[in-house]
Structures are given as structure tokens and as C-alpha cells.
Design a protein around this nucleic acid. Structure first.
Lengths: 334, 334
DNA sequence: GACGGCAGTTGAATCGTTTCATAACCATAG
DNA sequence: CTATGGTTATGAAACGATTCAACTGCCGTC
């Protein structure tokens, strides 16, 4: 098994010094053309590949950005991750992805790993309390950007979406389509996104003078949507809501399936709107109206913020960016 | 901004040599208890975090394993990735994930990156020709394991699933449930998985004397499933198949939705079976029968193979492991 | 012909960890 | 009191790329 070549070997073959080889790799404009080509052919001949560990050691930091998301199985977060990854790649940086599965322990172990790797910066969709952790990253010179969560003290930049506005959008749309008895289905309310969406729903319902019923779920999943739908179907039709705002698309799809199987017409008998606009929303039994969040854009923006702070080292650059969600109307409410 | 502490600083504070600090970190059994605790409190006090780049440089390789999959949006591959990631974590190794999106260029750039990082090994679900690339990795002492693809010459180990057997399982089940006119829906046939599944379906249909109709699609997606279903519904009922084997679950879900909306009863009028057993299969309008592949197990096995070869350095350890798929019966065929 | 300036090149020092041959220490046996 | 063995601790060398001050030619100027 042949040992891999180092800059030293390349230098020897090309009859130059190691410094020159390094310059060919990193500052080719400082080296004469003939030398460049001689070195490059030596590189090709030896199959030389730069050892990233040595480069990082000297540089003091890697060129990777750490990203911790709440849940890999949630399409919203995977879209954010993909957006971040692609945008980072265009700057020649890579993204290391970890999923905390909403467990503070896992979150901590990923942050430890990222510190060991001396990442350029961290994007974090946090569980629980992180202020002290952010302080520590900052003291190490590692900038952090919060994703989908705002922290009051400007201890870090953040990129988020206005979930209250999203809740307002959804319920206003249902009422404009003629709904007179609206229900919000979702939970647990400990999740900020859920409570914000409910809050938005509630205020707009009050403003427009329409009653809003709150139905709590244990999780934002398809089975929970089905369970709630079955419970609603037990009521006599006149006491059912005529429009439902589900806290995410998975719940909405569960509702749709059960209504559909029971012969309840969507949207004529009951209109349904979801949240997140995941890929499956458009291809559900009845194409599902939803509130769309600019997930890829969130990822890109977070990368921009973290790179800017890493480059300037200036905490004054911190910003809290809030995007606005958008209403996507499909058959389930039209 | 405080500089981060090194082993040298820790050694000074704990009044020991750098070698001892390193031993506390890596071989604590060689160090006396009192020294261990003294060093550990120094580590805590300074907030010392080991610099991974320096460690790797010394070790000659990182403790990460590179994984290149064909498509991040395919649940089968993300399950493989998750299985690999979790299993690797139990050995203290991490997995770096890249998606080639079926483009040879992207595949190559990820392999280059992995070589720069001196990964411990590579798991690869290849696009196109890779033999020469595998040779090169081998000459660098980086073992590779192919995922979901077999290469005839034993140039690398491989882990795959027997798709022909899967096709046989699916169609035998349909016929045992009473089907007398079976259709296979899927494509493009350039994808080995598709052609293998069709081949298995075809042989078993022949053996049992049941006619098999092949209906080609452009992709393995929900919309293509809906398109085919609409075309079938144009035929008079007696000329429709009474059972359909879809090349994957997305196509099957598309079929189900359109049949359901048209009032065709599944499975009474037409039985439907899919392939992959993705999470959505169990929660479809009609819970979908499917052929399940042990995706997490594939990931775990690939990790085992690559670590074994990395540890022994012995190419004789190479193996080609083929798993058998399993039939999962749900309402759509029962 | 002395000098400054410039482009190209050199090679030693550096980053932070791990390893390993060596040393120091202590206890027990002869 | 010495020899033997075992346990701990030491510190210099090594890993491989990058940097930077110093150096070499070479040209043009006064």
C-alpha cells in the first residue's frame, strides 16, 4: 500500500522548495508560470492530495460550518439544511449536519464536536436554554446564528419566520372563504411555533368575530390528525367546525384522510389548511392549502450572517431577521 | 476574545508534562488517580477542548467515514444513512454525508473531499463507472464499500438487497390473494432496481401462469402513479388489471389516491402493492402493502465492513452481502 | 558602478496533539 | 544493601501544510 505524497515529495520531484509548492496551491499569482506548470505536473504524477488536517491546524480553524437542527424527519428542517449546504458550497465551505432530536444532551454533544473541529461558525435551532452556551462559543471566537428562534438579548444573530403572522394568514383565509366555526388543531403548546400559530389564529378570529375552538394534540403527526378527525366525526354535523387550521401539514393530512374516508367532503363540508407546505401537501388526496415558509432562503440567510460575523469578528453585525410566511391556496379550501 | 487553551496550558496549570495530559485524555488507566483528577480540574478551569485537526494530523487519518448516496430525497437512502450514522456513533466514529444527486461530477467532488480529509473509509452508492476510482482509494489505504450495487470483480465489498427476489415476493403475494391480471408499473428501466424488480415479477407470473402487463413510467413519483391510474380508469373495468405491483411506494400512493377518488375499491376491485415500505406507506388513504428492505441494517452492515477492512487493512476480508427483502401485508392487498 | 526596487524563491518556524524511549520512584525479594 | 520489577511521569520528535522574513538575481536609474 503506497504512502500518500506530501508537499515535501512534490517539492523534491519538481525541484523547488516546499514554500513554492504551497504558493502554487494557494497563491499561484506569486509564482512564475513555468514553475507553476512544473509543480502541477509533479502533483499529478504523484497523485498528491492536500492533507486537510495539517492545513486546518495551521489555519487555526476548519472551513466547515456546524448546523444543529431539531429533527431530521421534519421536511422543513431538511429543506433549511439543504439551502444552507448549497449556499455554503458556493463559498467553498461545507456544512456538517447534526440532529438533536429535541434532546438537550444530543444538542450539547454536537456543539462539543463542532468546537473540537474548530468550525467556522454554528447554526443552531435550539432546544432549551442556550444563552450560556452561546457565550462560550463567542468567547472562543465562533459565531453562532439561531434558526427559527429569537433570543431577546442580542447574544447572537437569528433567522426566523413570523409564526403569529402565519396563524393570522391561515385563519383570515378560512374566514374569507366563508367559515363560521373554525378549529385550531395542534400541540404540544410548549413548542413555540405551535403557540405562536395558535395566538395568531386566535387574534384574527376575535377581530373578525368568529369563534375559534382549540383542539390540542400530543404531537404534530399524521396519526394525531386522524385521531382528532375521528373525534370530530362523532359529533352531529351541525356541531362540527366548518374549517380546520392544522398546526402543520402532517396533522392536516391525517385529518384529510379520515374525513375523506368518512365521506365528509373537503372543502365543501369542512375546509382544511395546514402549515409548512411540505412536498406531500400538493399531492395529498385533496391538494392541501398551506402556509409556506421560505425554508431554503432561511438556510441561505443564516449562512450569510454567520460568514459575515466570522469574517469581521464584529458582534455589532448581529441582526435578527424575520421572514414573512405566505399563503398557498389549493383545493382543500377553495 | 480569549484564545483557546492547549494541552500545554493545561499541563502548566496542573503542573505536569504535556505527555501526561495526553495520557489522561487517551489512556487514563496509565495515570494515577490523583494526577487524573488534578489534570481534569485544570481542563475544566481552562475550558480546554481538544483540537481535532492536530490529533488527526498525528494519527494520519480522521475518524470520520464518508458516505455518498444517490439522492437525499429518497427515504430509502436517508434511512440507510441514519442507520450508518447511528452505528458509527456507537464506535465513536462520525459519518460525513454527501448526496451525488445521481451526477458523476458531484460524486467525484465528494470523493475528493473525503480524500483530503483522510477519512477512515468510504461508503458509496455509485453512479456510473467507479472501478478506477476505487483502485485509487485502495492504493491510498482507504477502504470502500458499495451500497445497493454489486461490482463483479471483488474490487470492493458490497451490501445490497435482492431486488429480483423482491419482485417475486410481491407478485406471488398478489396472485395468492386471487389476482388473475397483474400489472407492473414503474420506470425508467435503466435503473437497475426497477429492471430487477420487473424481472422477478415477470418470472413468477410466468411460473404461476398469470399474465403480466408492463406499464412504464418516466419516474418513480406520485404524479406518475396518478397518471398511470387515470389511464387505467379509461379502460372498461373488465380490461383493467385486478392487481398492480408498483416499483416503489411513491408510485403506489399515486395509484391509490386516484383509484380512491374515482371510487375504485382497493383492494376489492384492484389490489395494490408498493416497494420500499417508506413511513408514508402505513399512513396512506388505504394502508399500503409493500416490500420492505432492511435499510438501517444495510447502513449498519456497511459500517461494519468498512471498519473491519480499515482495521485489518486486509483486502481478503472483502465480501458481497446480499439481504433478502420482506413482504409487509396491509389493507391494500388483504 | 552603486543603488533601489521588484519578482521569484527559499527554508526554518509554527500550529497542537500523540507517541515512545527514557527516567524517576517505590516496594519487595534475596 | 543491592537487584529486580512495576508503575508513573517526562519531554523531545513527529505529523504536513502554511507563513514570512530573508535572500537571490536582474533591471533600470542617476
Amino acid at each position: 500500500m503506497m504512502e500518500s505524497a506530501s508537499v515535501r515529495d512534490v517539492a523534491a520531484l519538481a525541484q523547488v522548495s516546499v514554500g513554492t509548492v504551497s504558493n502554487v496551491l494557494n497563491h499561484p499569482e506569486k509564482v512564475s508560470e513555468t514553475t507553476v506548470s512544473r509543480v502541477q505536473s509533479a502533483i499529478r504524477e504523484l497523485g498528491f492530495i492536500r492533507n486537510d488536517a495539517a492545513r486546518q491546524l495551521r489555519a487555526g480553524h476548519s472551513n466547515a460550518i456546524g448546523l444543529v437542527i431539531l429533527d431530521v424527519t421534519n421536511p422543513f428542517f431538511t429543506d433549511v439544511a439543504r439551502g444552507a449546504q448549497q449556499h455554503a458550497a458556493s463559498f467553498g465551505k461545507s456544512v456538517i449536519l447534526g440532529s438533536s432530536d429535541e434532546k438537550p444532551d444530543l444538542e450539547r454533544s454536537y456543539l462539543d464536536l463542532f468546537e473540537e473541529q474548530r468550525v467556522l461558525g454554528v447554526l443552531l435551532s435550539p432546544v432549551g436554554e442556550v444563552t450560556s452556551r452561546l457565550e462560550r462559543l463567542r468567547s472562543r471566537g465562533i459565531p453562532a446564528v439561531l434558526v427559527d428562534r429569537i433570543i431577546p438579548d442580542a447574544v447572537a444573530s437569528s433567522v426566523s419566520v413570523d409564526d403569529v403572522a402565519g396563524g393570522r394568514l391561515a385563519v383570515r383565509h378560512l374566514i374569507e372563504q366563508g367559515a363560521s366555526r373554525v378549529a385550531f388543531v395542534g400541540g404540544p403548546f410548549g413548542i413555540r411555533q405551535v403557540s405562536d400559530r395558535a395566538a395568531g389564529a386566535s387574534t384574527v378570529a376575535q377581530e373578525l368575530g368568529v369563534p375559534l375552538e382549540i383542539i390540542a394534540t400530543d404531537a404534530l403527526s399524521i396519526p394525531e390528525g386522524r385521531r382528532v378527525a375521528s373525534e370530530l366525526l362523532v359529533r352531529e354535523p351541525a356541531r362540527r367546525p366548518d374549517a380546520v387550521f392544522a398546526a402543520n401539514d402532517l396533522v392536516a393530512i391525517g385529518l384529510l384522510q379520515t374525513f375523506f374516508a368518512a365521506g365528509v367532503a373537503v372543502p365543501r363540508d369542512i375546509a382544511v389548511i395546514g402549515y409548512d407546505d411540505i412536498g406531500f401537501a400538493a399531492t395529498a388526496v385533496v391538494p392541501l392549502s398551506s402556509i409556506s415558509q421560505p425554508s431554503a432562503l432561511i438556510g441561505r440567510t443564516a449562512i450569510d450572517l454567520v460568514l459575515a460575523e466570522a469574517a469581521s469578528g464584529d458582534p455589532a453585525d448581529r441582526q435578527a431577521i424575520v421572514f414573512q410566511p405566505e399563503l398557498v391556496v389549493r383545493d382543500s379550501t377553495a
